[in-house]
Design a protein around this nucleic acid. Structure first.
Lengths: 155, 155
DNA sequence: TTGCGGTTGATATGATATAACATTGCGGGT
DNA sequence: ACCCGCAATGTTATATCATATCAACCGCAA
């Protein structure tokens, strides 16, 4: 079901399934899944790793050079609707592995191959926040390390 | 013991205690706690919120204008020795609340007043990482929300 | 003295992100 | 058909964050 970039799998299927899911969600919610937005999500899904806004911009250039806001606006749309996530540690973006599912995203980032896996995680800060009277609205959880393949290669 | 920026406390004591602790740790470890490095930590400790590298640079300017690498080098020293932390979500830095203690830092960031508290957190990604064969080397955990005072004010 | 490692100073540039404003295209009301 | 409003897009300029590079300095030990 879920896409695990650290292991071999039929990624074309993940790509197609996710795009179809986002198509359906946008139709359902009355969101405009415009060509630029679709193309950006497509690029994120095809890339083996997280893409920076300017990487995306460069790949959109087939249609002629675009200015930075083009990429940032499409990314804002995708992120704010839960179709993509921003990685704060990398200043980069990945397609969401479970669009439509409510989830608290967490990420495993391989520092060697730059691949990123989206993981399920508990809500570890709830206790600390409660003790301090802090109201949590959003959480960033990103682990950096080595994926299985790169750890093997490093031995 | 610990410094809680969301509540009234004698922060001058936190400031002095932390600087003294870092002095001692540097002596013990043979690290050069030079005037610039000390001044940057001092600024971080005095500030009510996280400071960007250029904020620090501007405040160092008493000694005459400095170039960006001056701030980044001092911050690298402080962060890599555990005397300060970088907040990925803000591209900014805070003094460590427990220098010398081994700890996995997590942060509560108030989006209204920009104050930041350092919290203790469990290691929520260990299970997910183990399942994927991923080796964790470092973790970013940052929660954004409202501190008690700002939540009260917002009602 | 000489050389070495670590720190600092300074210039330039690279990388990421947003402000501000003009323009287009589309649906609804008249 | 016309106008209007709204969302999306295009474009220029600029703000913000970060690093590469090389020169100068300083304490220290061979």
């Amino acid at each position: 079901m879920s896409c695990d970039p650290f292991h071999r799998h039929d990624h074309a299927a993940c790509h197609d399934r996710t795009l179809a899911a986002v198509d359906a969600l946008c139709a359902e919610r009355g969101l405009q899944f415009t060509p630029t937005r679709r193309e950006v999500l497509d690029l994120l899904l095809r890339a083996p790793k997280a893409l920076g806004a300017y990487d995306i911009l460069a790949q959109l250039a087939g249609d002629g050079a675009k200015a930075p806001p083009v990429a940032y606006r499409a990314l804002d749309f995708l992120v704010s609707n839960g179709f993509a996530h921003r990685l704060e540690k990398l200043n980069a973006y990945v397609a969401c592995a479970h669009p439509g599912d409510a989830h608290l995203p967490a990420f495993l980032i391989c520092r060697a191959c730059d691949r990123v896996a989206e993981a399920d995680a508990p809500r570890p800060l709830n206790k600390a926040a409660r003790e301090q009277g802090f109201t949590i609205e959003g959480v960033v959880m990103e682990a950096v390390g080595l994926c299985p393949a790169c750890a093997d290669a490093a031995e």
